[in-house]
Simulated assay, not measured.
Amino acid sequence: MTRTPPTAVTRVRLWRWRRNPLRRPSDLVEAWVVLATWILAVLGGACAGWAAAHSVDAGLAARRAQVHAVSAVLTDAAVRTVPDGSGYDDGRVWAVARWTGPDGSVHTDRAKVFPGAPAGTRVTVWADRAGRSVPPPASRAEGMLQTVLTGILVAQVTGTAVWAGGWLVRGALVRRRLTEWDEEWKRVEPEWRNFSGGGR
């Protein structure tokens, strides 16, 4: 006596895209939702990341164009040791420096110098177009790093948000389909019970 091998269950790929009697309109809608979600997540994330990186790069370039380095002179000698608990992390200290602005006006402000620098030492400070002291702009390497990290972060956040929105829509379609199945089963179950009972 030969035994009939169990029937293998074959998984049909892309069945939602193929015409078949079991495919419902909601299945096709779900397939389009999944496809659109992935496309928008990838392309939307890439475009948003590129736009954010371009905006950061333009902002850094504008900042560099608005400031310039000027040569200043220390008016007093800098302290010889870094104060304890002062928060200095680069081994330099603050000292008073003086420089002349583009309009010939004299400006005085603090500048970072190495400890023990004598009065009259020339240092470089950054000033705006009015000659006022400003923090130094980001270097090219720092600007590039900031631009890249911002683009990656915005791309990831945008892609994740689109993906999550698409899967929420897909979840709603699945819940709707399950509800429809329950309603159909309530209509079919009495007939199925009568049929199965009469066939015994």
Results as ranks from 00 to 15, higher is better:
Asp76Cys: 02
Ala53His: 03
Val29Thr: 10
Val34Met: 14
Asp57His: 12
Val42Lys: 01
Ala62Cys: 12
Leu43Met: 12
Pro21Thr: 03
Val33Asp: 06
Thr37Gln: 10
Leu74Trp: 05
Ala51Lys: 00
His54Ser: 15
Ser71Arg: 15
Arg24Leu: 15
Ser55Pro: 01
Gly49Asp: 03
Ala78Met: 09
Asn20Ser: 15
Leu40Met: 13
Leu35Asp: 06
Arg23His: 03
Ala52Met: 03
Asn20Gly: 14
Val34Ser: 10
Ala72Cys: 11
Thr75Met: 14
Asn20Glu: 10
Ala61Pro: 03
Gly44Cys: 07
Val29Gln: 05
Asp57Gly: 12
Val73Asn: 00
Trp38Arg: 02
Ala65Gly: 15
Gly49Leu: 00
Ala65Val: 10
Leu22Glu: 02
Glu30Arg: 07
Pro25Val: 11
Ser71Gly: 06
Leu22Val: 14
Leu43Glu: 06
Leu28Cys: 03
Arg19Val: 07
Arg64Trp: 12
Ala48Arg: 11
Leu22Phe: 10
Gly44Tyr: 04
Thr37Pro: 09
Ala69Asn: 07
Ala31Thr: 03
Asp57Leu: 00
Ala41Gly: 13
Thr37Tyr: 08
Ala65Ile: 11
Gly59Asn: 11
Arg18Gln: 13
Val70Lys: 01
Ser71Met: 09
Arg19Thr: 11
Gln66Phe: 05
Arg18His: 10
Ala62Ser: 14
Asp27Asn: 12
Pro21Asn: 07
Asp57Tyr: 04
Ile39Ala: 15
Thr75Gln: 14
Leu35Thr: 12
Trp38Phe: 15
Leu40Ile: 08
Gly49Ile: 04
Arg64Met: 10
Ser71Lys: 13
Val56Met: 05
Leu40Ser: 13
Val29Asp: 02
Gly49Glu: 02
Arg18Ser: 09
Gly44Ser: 08
Val70Trp: 02
Ala78Trp: 02
Leu40Arg: 00
Asn20Thr: 04
Thr37Cys: 12
Leu22Asp: 02
Val67Asp: 07
Ala53Tyr: 03
Leu28Glu: 05
Ala69Lys: 09
Arg63Phe: 05
Leu60His: 09
Ser55Gly: 11
Ala72Arg: 00
